[in-house]
């Protein structure tokens, strides 16, 4: 199958190779949560809710009482994929993604400022169309910032792939399942540090660098967007408070 049109250079969904899907971020969607956000990347749609910092519920999980405990739960809604299948809660895929998101977010949260407390992050995929783990990380960042949890930097994530000898930014489900390489990168946008790097195929060294560079560009674009959303939200709250 042609994933990039040889004549026009467009992808299956009409994007250019280095073009991202449409982003949409909304803050404060869950009433009872301390912070919450909805994040869309094209047809991928993710909701995140943050509770905390609050009292540690299970004292056994607390390793270091001088730092906050960060927990994360990733779930896919049953209606999120094309075939409606009930997935068990602790399947390997979601456990792995929960761990990935937790580690990525923990790198940015200033946990030492909130001793003896825990922060819970719940992310749920409402519509899956490729790049769910990137979307989850972006949603979690927005939700954490909304909850007023101190962070070193904005964490954003974006994926990139390599199909038809072209590096492609922000793969959708069709391109994701094509069997090519899929590189997911998470960065601290301002400090220019990588907190997450995953790849599930082999790539030549020089092409990998190109693909990763493209993904980092994508991350930076998302960071700019997320900051716009947050700044607008902060200004709105301040104006209404008067």
């Amino acid at each position: 199958m042609e994933y990039v049109d040889p004549l026009t250079g467009f992808r299956v969904d009409g994007r250019r190779p280095n073009e991202m899907r449409k982003l949409k971020g909304e803050v404060g969607v869950v009433a009872r949560a301390d912070g919450s956000a909805l994040f869309e990347m094209g047809n991928t749609r993710v909701i995140a809710a943050v509770y905390g910092p609050r009292e540690v519920q299970n004292k056994g999980q607390q390793v270091n009482s001088k730092e906050a405990l960060v927990r994360c739960e990733y779930r896919m809604a049953e209606f999120s994929t094309g075939d409606r299948r009930r997935k068990p809660k602790g399947d390997r895929r979601s456990t792995e993604i929960s761990l990935v998101i937790r580690q990525t977010m923990e790198a940015s949260i200033l946990t030492h400022l909130m001793p003896r407390s825990q922060i819970d992050i719940f992310v749920q995929v409402l519509q899956a169309d490729g790049g769910t783990r990137s979307a989850c990380i972006n949603a979690a960042t927005l939700a954490l910032a909304d909850a007023g949890i101190p962070m070193r930097d904005i964490v954003t994530s974006c994926s990139a792939g390599y199909l038809c000898s072209t590096p492609l930014l922000d793969l959708n489900y069709l391109e994701d399942s094509a069997g090519g390489a899929d590189v997911t990168v998470g960065i601290l946008a301002k400090m220019d540090k990588v907190t997450l790097l995953q790849m599930d195929a082999k790539l030549a060294m020089d092409t990998f660098e190109n693909v990763m560079g493209l993904a980092i560009e994508g991350c930076k674009a998302i960071a700019t967007y997320i900051r716009e959303v947050l700044l607008e939200n902060t200004k709105r709250l301040e104006c209404q408070r008067g």
Binding site: A145, M151, R152, D153, I154, A189, K190, R227, L230, L231, T234, K235, E238, C239, G242
Partner: peptide, 14 residues
């Protein structure tokens, strides 16, 4: 109605 200084002082993470 809010003074411009107040919205100019708004910051986000980083």
């Amino acid at each position: 109605l809010t003074p411009a200084a107040a919205s100019a002082a708004a910051v986000t993470v980083a």
